[in-house]
């Protein structure tokens, strides 16, 4: 196969489909005009297209579809079921695709917030010896907190109105420090 034919073969289909750029169509038309082989290839593609169309359309033409629309509408009337799982799946996928950046960011923030809460309120916190989680956050206009040394343990007393809370660290100062 000569070079010009090699270039032409993949373009013959798009050409007969009317999908080729004008400049390519121009040189291809010129080549096919003077090349019997490519002219025959083009004719074969067109003939094959027409034959396939005729065969498939002809086969389907004999089918009786007169009741199809009625059958579809009857099904729709009987099938007033809620959105199928498929739709949920599609919705989920589409939502994820459309908002994945925001969803990822929100998930990241949620995780970060959870970690922060754990860090703030965890009784296992060791970074502020002698000051439990209540101490850091319970102080306010209606509550007083007094740190107390229970000799072998550290702790605090929280007084809020009529309520008193005594907090003792079981691990003792040795562990805390």
């Amino acid at each position: 196969m000569k070079r010009r034919c090699e270039e032409s073969v993949p373009l013959l289909g798009p050409w007969i489909d009317g999908e080729l750029a004008a400049e390519d169509s121009a040189w291809l038309a010129e080549h096919v005009d003077c090349c019997k082989a490519c002219s025959a290839r083009k004719a074969l593609l067109e003939a094959q297209r027409d034959a396939v169309r005729e065969a498939v359309v002809g086969k389907a033409a004999s089918a009786d579809l007169s009741g199809l629309a009625d059958a579809v509408l009857a099904r729709l009337q009987n099938d007033q079921s809620p959105a199928p799982v498929l739709r949920l799946r599609v919705w989920g996928t589409e939502t994820w695709r459309a908002h994945r950046t925001r969803i990822s960011a929100a998930a990241g923030l949620a995780v970060a917030a959870s970690l922060a809460l754990v860090a703030i309120f965890s009784p296992l916190r060791r970074d502020t010896p002698g000051r439990g989680p209540l101490l850091a956050d319970a102080r306010g206009p209606n509550a007083t907190v007094e740190e107390v040394d229970f000799e072998s343990h550290e702790g605090a007393v929280l007084q809020a109105g009529q309520t008193t809370v005594i907090w003792v660290d079981d691990d003792g100062p040795a562990v805390l420090r």
């Binding site: 196969m1 090699e6 073969v9 019997k36 082989a37 490519c38 025959a40 290839r41 004719a43 074969l44 067109e46 003939a47 094959q48 027409d50 034959a51 396939v52 005729e54 065969a55 498939v56 002809g58 086969k59």
Partner: peptide
Amino acid sequence: IEAHMDPPSAALAGPHRAALNAELKSKID
């Protein structure tokens, strides 16, 4: 691709095409 794109005849074109018979339809199927 080249091997299968040997210059074809216009076998399906012209009179042959017009006489698209049952056998050819079944071959297309």
